[in-house]
Design a binder for these strands. Structure first.
Length: 206
DNA sequence: GCGTCGATGGCA
DNA sequence: GCCATCGACGCG
């Protein structure tokens, strides 16, 4: 037969992807949030690995940023943001959803990037078009808080061929953050069909 | 298609 | 008493 065995196809596909190392994350949240658009989440659940391409992020740029949880101080919840970059910061919102963030910047400078939406890759199908839906589908929870993103269970890959267009807009759901609510700290790939429903672009015809 | 609202629990 | 959300519902 002419068809490749499925395992061979998958191996060929992932060969073009390079795992991001810890040093990649040690940059300001402002630039990391943009660099993460087009990167691929690799999430292992038991024996299976699921891949998803990030299409929407938000930067939380430090303790002076009124929308950043660390602006209220260093607490048990925000502790991981004060540590080294490249770890997961996962917390519960509205008593319902876990939010997946990636710690950015330097030690003692609490910055992070919220992963808001992604599109499933490699034949897998799921609705990842929102931060709550994404963590539910990828089974990311507070149990993953503090995990290094160089781990086997959860890490990120770079596709050097993926050079996404990036649009900046205000962040979502932070009306309380005074002047910070207007800052252009949300980034997205405007060509994606998997943007969050509150993105203002997800249903825009093209 | 759009606005409004309730669920739900950890945190300060 | 607040939320870095989602989905259901009412309206039209």
């Amino acid at each position: 037969m002419t068809a490749f065995p499925m395992a061979a196809v998958a191996a060929t596909w992932s060969c073009s992807l390079i795992q991001l190392e810890q040093s990649f994350y040690a940059q300001p949240a402002l630039t990391l949030a943009q660099a993460l658009i087009g990167k691929v989440i690799a999430r292992r659940v038991r024996r299976k690995v699921f891949h998803a391409r990030i299409v929407e992020t938000e930067a939380y740029v430090g303790s002076h940023d009124l929308a950043c949880h660390a602006s209220k101080g260093r607490t048990n919840r925000t502790e991981v943001m004060f540590g080294p970059a490249g770890r997961a910061y996962v917390y519960l919102i509205y008593g319902v959803y876990d939010m997946f963030n990636i710690v950015a910047g330097e030690v003692d400078d609490p910055q992070a990037v919220l992963i808001r939406a992604a599109e499933p890759l490699n034949g897998w199908s799921a609705d990842l078009s929102g931060p709550g839906k994404l963590t539910r589908a990828l089974k990311i929870s507070r149990a993953d808080n503090g995990v290094a993103l160089t781990s086997d269970r959860l890490h990120l890959l770079d596709d050097p061929a993926d050079r996404p267009q990036i649009v900046a807009t205000p962040r979502i759901g932070i009306d309380y953050a005074r002047e910070w609510k207007h800052e252009l700290l949300r980034f997205l790939d405007p060509t994606s069909k998997a943007l969050s429903s509150r993105s203002g672009l997800s249903s825009t015809p093209r």
